[in-house]
Computed example of a mutant assay.
Amino acid sequence: MDRSPRAATLAEAGALTATLAAAFEHDPVLGWLIPDRHRRLRRLERFFALELRHVVLPAGTAWTVDGNAGASLELPPGRWRMPVGAQLAHGPAFTRVFARRLLHALGLITVMEHRHPREPHCYIPYVGVAPAAQGQRLGTALMRPTLDRCDREHLPAYLEATSERNAALYERLGFEHLGAFRFGSSPPLWPMRRPPAAR
């Protein structure tokens, strides 16, 4: 497998949807939002199809490798917030994903958006690697184009870790903790910011 990251095409959205759903099937926060283990994978596929086709690919970049074994999603400065019109337009699809937990999901998204840094920044909403390809530092490789762009343009990078293990990985890449938070009874999220490179 070629580990060199490249920008995914819209035609690859279906393959990446399946990869991201498998990668996040046991994620604590998404598991809290979709507690039905028997339906979680299918609902995550619907969720990531929405994210890729209507949020990330129109405005940013989905970095992947040959074989679509993983993806790192990147949204550029000013393009990370989902417009209210888009939220309303995709309301029925969001309902099919989150069902009775829809209000929890919308509330969590709102809190996450309010916690974003006010400065221009690149946002990395999801980094996921297929279970069979995990443990090979592929996630780190997939993030590299975004981090290199941030260094070139002297921009901070921002993300939310959903586990202490992932937070430790991001720390090794230069991200710093901004203080964990919860939404209601959710598991903790760790917002993290990687400072811009010095000019």
Rank of each mutant, 00 (worst) to 15 (best):
P28R: 03
L106E: 14
A105C: 05
P58S: 10
R39K: 09
A105Q: 07
A89H: 00
Y126M: 04
L50A: 12
V65L: 04
R39Q: 10
H121W: 10
L138P: 10
A132H: 13
Q87T: 06
A59G: 03
P131L: 06
H116W: 06
T95L: 15
P83V: 00
A86C: 02
A93D: 07
N68V: 03
I124W: 06
R40C: 07
L106R: 13
D66G: 11
R53M: 07
H114C: 12
A62Y: 07
L142R: 02
P35E: 13
G78L: 03
A86W: 13
T64S: 02
C122L: 09
H26R: 07
P83Y: 00
T64G: 07
T95P: 00
L33Q: 01
H114N: 08
P76K: 01
M82I: 10
R79I: 03
A59Y: 03
E51K: 06
A133L: 09
P120M: 14
F98M: 12
Q87F: 01
H90A: 01
V84E: 08
R118F: 12
H26Y: 07
H26F: 04
Y123C: 09
R46C: 11
Q87R: 11
G128I: 13
Y123S: 05
A49N: 06
H54W: 01
P83K: 05
G67M: 03
V56I: 11
R137Y: 00
H116N: 09
L108V: 09
G67D: 02
G78M: 02
F47D: 13
